[in-house]
Write a protein that binds this DNA or RNA. Structure first.
Length: 879
DNA sequence: GGCCTCACG
DNA sequence: ACGTACGTGAGGCCC
């Protein structure tokens, strides 16, 4: 076997990764997506090729010999957008950290260096692989030199391979003739112009026939295609020039020693730390933990499994102002507790013998009266130990969420990195892999001690920095007065859950099945064949190809069959209505009838999880199951709400804010006209229509009201004429006219929204009335789409977020009053602007009063916060 | 695991 | 010119 060298075109692969993948942003706000993509490709090719030597070539900013020879030459690289440019040094830093040789040479492009080294290596008898995104490099292919080109197909990255033969097969010309081909057809990516009127087909034909541009010119008279012939005769000089530009130099004076480029251990400590810093988590498991975690903390960890020891430990903990705690447990059990007394006394207490979950709960409960328990996730802890809402706790996950709500996870190792100067500690996945807590506990794995201790340690240590940053950013009040109390409110809601009648749900599902099967038959009949109606792909083919319905492509992968497209086709094609009904029923059956049925627990109730650290705006979300998207808009779906019932002796009281977001807008913008409108209006959309269209209130038509309502929504979403036009099925021009009229009617609104965008650009974030922040990095993007998105976000988030703050305040206050007044009634659901209370019948008047007072009183706005309330024996009736 | 579709505010 | 309304979660398909 020959030795092999892998040569990489640095810029071209980075470019490809940048355009082919979604961008990522590191915790410090650096763009990193292209570097990530580059490394992914690098690792893959290394594994496939297993080269002994490796070098990455980069272009230089200086003019090259091509510039000197041809003054008009503009260079082969397009100017890089800022988001890509800043990643270049990052990539070079990473390559340096991995000990990978990089080369560049003033006066030459990376291509030339690759060409030179490929040739020299071949001469030494080595095998060569060249990795580039640029097909120009195919001219270097030979029996010994393999060209590899990454290509994105169907979302997957394929890396094509070309030796000499494959070039011949694909392009019907030899590698060296690739240059001739380019000279004729040009290459826009490479700024090679080619000659007019000759495309790929003609160029290939000519080069196949005549071998070179020169020879084709010599035989020009024989060329049968008139346009190609004339163009070649006329533009021969241009073709010659292009030929020279396209030719890669293979004898540049680059200094290179193979020995320096020997592939060593890429997985160094420096590379590991950089991967952590850039948040490249999927790469971390490539590193050998023993090598990269030299400064292990494990000497500070102690397992305490005897009862006396634990007693002493809790006594010592009680002397501390704060301790870090981590409770290991899941739905099936409680396995142990990590306890950090300070930075270097960290204990693990496994659940065993006398240290039962009940014992730990009791100890922590009493500890929390005077000592602050710092935890990564207090609500999760509350599932194993009982704490009163007055307990002293610090929730690191929530604090970190407030400081940056855009992250998807807030794990301890991320927090350590982000708030302890990049401190690297192993993540749960690194310690346990895919082994469950339960399994690890049963097998007494030592990693459990490490996990609990690292977590408790982090919780203890990050509290200070988090608190400091929350105060710096003026979010301390949001944290202490809204989010932290909400932990207990949500925990209570989760524990109560809501009763669901399983049998009725099943009946409902069975009825759906009957109709679904009817529709299925009907649809198959009309289509003339059986197919999977649930497959958009198959459905698209049936509708738009087989049945020939005009509708056209829309998505990357095929035809769009979404409801808004199908609805437009429905009048002319009966099958479409059946499909729409089928879809609706299939959704109800799978997501709701079956989905909800599967999560009813032994107590006959559904216990959703309310997540407090998910949304970018400050709303909560609901999962497993999602109880915030139970159907209501269509009657058939709405019927599902009949299976949500209160316990005997209770009724539901459902209270929702009326147009809270528009009211927030009125308040925050201070628009007198809109505020006045709310003071007098029964029907704000109708009044908006009357004011925007300058007509008396009584003369507003239903259509005008509908349009005004859509504009009101649009304003809250960060208005755009395109979005509004889509929603109302009108032209952009008409939509723009509506928006303009709206702004004329409510003159302060435009200034307010513009101000939000301005603030977002200036400060990098926008804020709610209560100081909650949302960063808007998209506003700095050079990409129009992203920037526009940033503008809409800047307009929407303060409004949606303020409404979220208000209902959170209301929830806390309602929850507290129910407790303080020792009522049996309980808060069970929140759906963004709505609260559902399972109310003890005797307490109906009192609870109604509480809801009204606390919801209306949650914030004092320039307009009243109006609350609608309904009572019922199930959720359907209470709405 | 990504994409499409659709349920909610 | 670009190709969109803001914020979510879940199920089914298909690679």
């Amino acid at each position: 076997m020959c030795e092999k060298i892998l040569l990489i075109d640095g810029h071209s692969i980075l470019n490809r990764a940048f355009y082919g993948l979604p961008d990522l942003t590191s915790p410090e706000g650096l763009h990193t997506g292209a570097v990530y993509g580059f490394l992914n490709i690098l690792f893959r090719v290394l594994e496939e090729e297993k080269p002994e030597y490796l070098a990455v070539a980069f272009d230089r900013s200086e003019p090259t010999f091509r510039h000197q020879k041809y003054p008009e030459y503009k260079g082969t690289r397009k100017p890089m957008p800022e988001e890509l440019k800043e990643q270049l040094p990052l990539l070079q830093e990473m390559l340096a950290a991995m000990g990978i040789t990089t080369i560049s040479l003033a006066g030459y492009e990376a291509d030339d260096l690759l060409g030179t080294l490929a040739k020299r290596s071949e001469e030494k008898g080595m095998d060569v692989t060249v990795l580039s995104g640029d097909r120009d490099l195919l001219q270097l292919a030979s029996k010994k030199t393999l060209i590899r080109i990454p290509k994105t197909a169907k979302g997957q990255t394929l890396i094509e391979s070309y030796h000499e033969d494959e070039v011949l097969e694909h392009y019907q010309v030899t590698p060296s003739q690739i240059i001739e081909l380019k000279a004729l057809m040009g290459d826009s990516a490479d700024n090679i112009s080619g000659i007019p009127g000759v495309g790929e087909k003609n160029a290939t034909r000519l080069i196949k026939e005549y071998g070179t541009v020169e020879n084709a010119y010599a035989h020009a008279e024989e060329i049968p295609q008139k346009r190609a012939r004339e163009s070649l005769l006329e533009h021969y000089e241009l073709a010659q020039l292009s030929r020279e530009l396209a030719a890669i130099c293979t004898d540049s004076p680059v200094e290179f020693s193979c020995e320096d480029a020997k592939v060593g251990d890429l997985y160094t400590k420096e590379a590991y730390e950089l991967c952590r810093k850039l948040d490249f988590r999927s790469f971390l498991n490539r590193f050998d933990p023993a090598q990269v975690n030299e400064d292990s903390m494990e000497q500070d960890f102690f397992t305490c499994s005897d009862f006396e020891g634990c007693e002493a430990l809790f006594e010592k903990a009680a002397q501390a102002e704060a301790v870090g705690v981590s409770l290991l447990g899941d739905k099936e059990g409680t396995y142990g507790l990590g306890l950090a007394l300070n930075e270097d006394e960290i204990y693990y207490i496994p659940v065993q013998g006398m240290t039962t979950p009940g014992y730990l709960s009791e100890k922590l409960e009493s500890l929390s009266q005077n000592t602050m328990l710092c935890s990564m996730d207090v609500k999760a802890m509350l599932k194993h130990i009982e704490l009163r809402p007055e307990a002293k706790v610090f929730d690191c996950g929530i604090a970190a969420y407030l400081l940056n709500p855009l992250k998807s996870t807030y794990t301890y190792e991320e927090l350590a990195r982000d708030y302890l100067d990049g401190k690297a500690i192993p993540a749960k996945e690194e310690l346990l892999g895919k082994i469950s807590l339960k399994k690890a506990w049963e097998q007494d794995m030592p990693e459990l001690e490490q996990l609990a201790c690292y977590m408790a340690y982090t919780a203890f240590c990050v509290r200070g920095p988090l608190e400091e940053k929350l105060k710096e950013t003026s979010m301390w009040k949001v944290y202490t007065e809204i989010e932290l109390p909400l932990v207990f409110t949500l925990d209570s809601m989760e524990k109560w859950g809501i009763e669901v009648k399983g049998e009725e749900l099943k009946n409902y599902g069975d009825q759906l099945t009957v109709r679904i099967q009817e529709l299925e038959k009907l649809i198959w009949q009309q289509a003339g064949e059986e197919f999977n109606i649930n497959s958009p792909k198959q459905l698209g083919v049936i509708l738009f190809e087989k049945m020939g319905i005009p509708g056209g492509k829309k998505t990357k992968t095929g035809y769009s069959t979404s409801a808004d497209i199908l609805e437009k086709l429905a009048p002319d094609h009966p099958i479409v209505n059946d499909i729409l009904e089928y879809r609706q029923l299939a959704k109800l059956k799978s997501t709701y009838a079956d989905g909800l049925g599967a999560v009813i627990e032994a107590d006959g109730r559904i216990h959703s999880t309310f997540n407090q650290t998910i949304t970018a705006t400050g709303r909560i979300s609901s999962t497993e199951p999602n109880l915030q998207n139970i159907p209501v808009r269509m009657e058939l779906g709405r019927l599902i709400r009949k299976v949500f019932v209160p316990e005997p002796g209770f009724v539901f009281l459902d209270a929702d804010y009326s147009q809270i977001e528009l009211r927030v807008l009125a308040h925050m913008s201070g628009d007198e006209k809109l505020i006045q409108a709310y003071r007098e209006a029964e029907d704000i959309h109708r009044l908006t229509a009357s004011q925007v269209f300058h007509i008396p209130l009584e003369e507003v038509t239903p259509l005008q009201r509908r349009n005004a309502k859509a504009v009101n929504f649009g304003i809250v979403y960060g208005i755009s004429s395109f979005g509004l036009s889509q929603d109302l099925s009108i032209t952009r021009k008409e939509a723009a006219a509506y928006i303009q009229k709206y702004f004329e009617t409510y003159p302060s609104i435009k200034g307010f929204l513009d101000g939000l965008v301005e603030q977002g650009k200036e400060k990098g974030y926008v804020s709610t009335m209560f100081g909650r922040r949302r960063p808007v990095p998209e506003l700095k993007s050079s990409n129009f789409m992203q920037r526009s998105f940033g503008e809409r976000v800047a307009m929407n988030s303060p409004i949606q977020g303020t409404a979220a703050d208000i209902i959170k305040i209301a929830m806390n206050r309602v929850y507290k009053r129910l407790l303080d007044e020792k009522l049996r009634s309980r808060l069970v659901l929140q759906v963004h602007d709505e609260l559902l209370i399972e109310t003890w019948k005797d307490e109906i008047p009192q609870v109604s009063r509480i809801l009204e007072e606390e919801m209306k009183g949650a914030a004092h706005l320039a307009v009243e916060l109006e609350v609608d309330m309904h009572q019922g024996d199930n959720w359907y009736e209470a709405k």
